[in-house]
Amino acid sequence: MNRDAFENALTAEGFTEFVLVTREAGELEEHTHPFEAKALILAGEITIRVGNDERIFQPGDIFHLGANAPHAERYGPQGVQYLVGRR
């Protein structure tokens, strides 16, 4: 899915805030966000751990986290860039 199609799909789902996120290689310990997030990976990779489940997302992949869902993030050797819709 390309960026425009992703934004259009999320707008249709009721997402109103879009943010381009760039992270350097590294980790973020378990945390939560007060918003629902759905993101399209544009470059690099991110590993997201929810509970005991861990998944790697690469360009073209989409991840979805509910509001207040505890999760940890690890960014690949080249970091990651993704477009996220929040609601």
Results as ranks from 00 to 15, higher is better:
Met1Gly: 07
Met1Phe: 06
Asn2Trp: 03
Asn2Gln: 04
Arg3Gln: 13
Asp4His: 05
Ala5Val: 06
Ala5Gly: 13
Phe6Gln: 00
Phe6Ala: 00
Glu7Phe: 13
Glu7Met: 09
Glu7Ser: 10
Glu7Arg: 10
Asn8Trp: 12
Asn8Phe: 14
Asn8Thr: 15
Ala9Leu: 08
Ala9Arg: 01
Ala9Met: 06
Ala9Ser: 13
Leu10Tyr: 15
Leu10Asn: 08
Thr11Pro: 11
Thr11Ala: 14
Glu13Lys: 02
Gly14Met: 13
Gly14Leu: 09
Gly14Pro: 13
Gly14Cys: 14
Phe15Ser: 06
Phe15Tyr: 14
Thr16Glu: 08
Thr16Phe: 15
Glu17Cys: 15
Phe18Trp: 08
Val19Tyr: 14
Val19Ala: 15
Val19Gly: 12
Val19Leu: 15
Leu20Ala: 15
Leu20Thr: 14
Leu20Cys: 14
Val21Cys: 11
Val21Arg: 13
Val21Gln: 12
Thr22Cys: 11
Arg23Glu: 10
Arg23Tyr: 11
Glu24Tyr: 14
Ala25Arg: 04
Ala25Asn: 11
Gly26Pro: 04
Gly26His: 07
Glu27Gly: 15
Leu28Lys: 03
Glu29Phe: 09
Glu30His: 08
Glu30Ile: 10
Glu30Val: 14
His31Tyr: 06
Thr32Asn: 07
His33Glu: 09
His33Met: 10
His33Phe: 07
Phe35Ile: 09
Phe35Tyr: 07
Phe35Leu: 09
Phe35Arg: 10
Glu36Trp: 02
Ala37Ile: 02
Ala37Phe: 00
Lys38Trp: 03
Lys38Ile: 08
Lys38Gly: 06
Lys38Phe: 01
Ala39His: 07
Ala39Gly: 05
Ala39Lys: 04
Leu40Pro: 04
Leu42Cys: 11
Leu42Thr: 08
Leu42Phe: 13
Ala43Gln: 06
Ala43Ile: 07
Gly44Ala: 07
Glu45His: 10
Glu45Phe: 15
Ile46Asp: 10
Ile46Lys: 08
Thr47Lys: 06
Ile48Pro: 09
Arg49Val: 12
Arg49Thr: 10
Val50Met: 13
Gly51Ala: 13
Gly51Lys: 03
Gly51Val: 14
Asn52Met: 13
Asn52Ile: 12
Asn52Tyr: 12
Asp53Pro: 11
Glu54Cys: 09
Arg55Asp: 15
Ile56Ser: 12
Ile56Ala: 09
Ile56Pro: 07
Pro59Met: 06
Gly60Pro: 04
Gly60Ala: 06
Asp61Leu: 03
Ile62Phe: 08
Ile62Met: 02
Phe63Pro: 05
Phe63Glu: 02
His64Gln: 11
His64Trp: 02
Leu65Lys: 01
Leu65Phe: 03
Leu65Asp: 05
Gly66Arg: 05
Gly66Lys: 05
Ala67Gly: 07
Ala67Lys: 03
Asn68Ser: 08
Asn68Gln: 06
Ala69Thr: 11
Ala69Leu: 06
Ala69Pro: 04
Ala69Val: 07
Pro70Lys: 09
Pro70Met: 01
His71Pro: 03
His71Trp: 00
Ala72Lys: 00
Glu73Gly: 05
Arg74Met: 03
Arg74Asn: 02
Tyr75Val: 00
Tyr75Gly: 01
Gly76His: 02
Gly76Val: 00
Gln78Met: 03
Gln78Val: 06
Gly79Tyr: 03
Val80Phe: 02
Val80Cys: 03
Gln81Trp: 02
Tyr82Met: 00
Leu83Tyr: 00
Val84Met: 01
Val84Gln: 00
Gly85His: 02
Arg87Tyr: 01
